[in-house]
Simulated scan of single mutants.
Amino acid sequence: MPFIEENDLLDLHKDVEKAQIINERLLDQIKYKNKDLKRIKIQRNVLLGVTTLFLIGTLAITSFTAGLSSSNRLENQNNLLVSIDSLDAIKKRIDNLKQRNEELSLVNEFYLAKKFLEKETIYSVQVKSFVDNNVTLASEALTNTLFVKTNPFYAYSLGNFETLEEARKFRQQLVDMGFKDAFVASYQDGKRVKIEDPY
């Protein structure tokens, strides 16, 4: 029966403590990003409300000015040109706000996906593992990729599936593409639970 030497056990404990510290830091970063998202969302809503009030005010002033200066046709034309320029500026600002809202929605979806991966049991297809952590292979910002340290290896998995059947189908596609050693594993809280039967 194999045994673990005391030095190896101490190294293992150190690795576990480092992983816990890293997880705590990541959770703190996610909390900080969520606070930023809420603050930005409130700012966006306030800015949208101010922009709407500004638009209504501009239209009211333009209508009032156009009614008063009906005696001078040239003055009316100048006022109309100014109001059209103001409307164009407001339209551009609204377009910019819509674009920023879409970007914020993507960021929010990313953090929601990360939270889901940490709480639920998911299935992923491991395609490779290395002794050294090769961070140049891919970015941890990818939500459909897992990087997990399974002593003494760093495992790289593709896909995040809610069901084992979906993961098995994806594994078969990867095997057909040439990843003969690919296998399905289940994960929970960012840790591998077990290697699943491929069929």
Rank of each mutant, 00 (worst) to 15 (best):
Ile4Phe: 05
Asp11Pro: 00
His13Val: 03
His13Ile: 08
His13Thr: 05
Asp15Lys: 10
Val16Glu: 14
Val16Arg: 11
Ala19His: 06
Gln20Asn: 12
Ile21Asn: 11
Leu26Cys: 04
Asp28Trp: 02
Lys31Ala: 12
Asn34Ser: 09
Ile40Val: 11
Gln43Ala: 15
Gly49Pro: 00
Thr51His: 09
Thr51Pro: 00
Leu59Pro: 00
Leu59Met: 14
Gly67Asp: 13
Leu68Trp: 12
Ser70Gly: 08
Ser70Tyr: 09
Ser71Leu: 07
Asn72Ala: 07
Arg73Gly: 12
Glu75Val: 11
Asn76Lys: 09
Asn76Trp: 05
Gln77Met: 08
Leu81Asn: 15
Val82Gln: 12
Ser83Asp: 00
Ser86Gln: 12
Ala89Cys: 05
Ala89Thr: 12
Lys92Leu: 14
Ile94Met: 08
Leu97Trp: 02
Glu102Val: 08
Glu102Ile: 10
Leu104Asn: 10
Ser105Arg: 13
Val107Glu: 15
Val107Tyr: 03
Phe116Val: 10
Phe116Arg: 14
Phe116Ala: 11
Leu117Tyr: 03
Lys119Ala: 09
Lys119Asp: 11
Glu120Cys: 04
Glu120Arg: 02
Glu120Trp: 00
Thr121Met: 06
Tyr123His: 00
Val125Glu: 01
Gln126Tyr: 01
Val127Leu: 02
Val127Ser: 01
Val131Pro: 04
Val131Tyr: 15
Val131Arg: 11
Asn133Pro: 03
Asn133Cys: 05
Val135Trp: 02
Val135Lys: 09
Glu140Pro: 01
Ala141Cys: 02
Ala141Arg: 06
Leu142Asn: 11
Thr145Trp: 06
Phe147Ser: 02
Val148Gly: 01
Val148Met: 05
Pro152Thr: 03
Tyr156Cys: 01
Tyr156Leu: 14
Tyr156Val: 09
Leu158Lys: 04
Leu158Arg: 03
Phe161Ile: 03
Glu162Leu: 11
Glu166Phe: 00
Glu166Gly: 03
Arg168Phe: 04
Arg168Pro: 02
Arg171His: 05
Gln172Ile: 07
Gln172Thr: 13
Gln173Gly: 11
Leu174Trp: 04
Met177Glu: 15
Phe179Arg: 09
Lys180Ala: 13
Asp181Ala: 09
Ala182Gly: 02
Ala185Val: 07
Gln188Leu: 03
Arg192Val: 14
Lys194Leu: 06
Glu196Gly: 02
Asp197Gly: 00
Asp197Gln: 07
Pro198Cys: 03
Pro198Gln: 02
Tyr199Val: 11
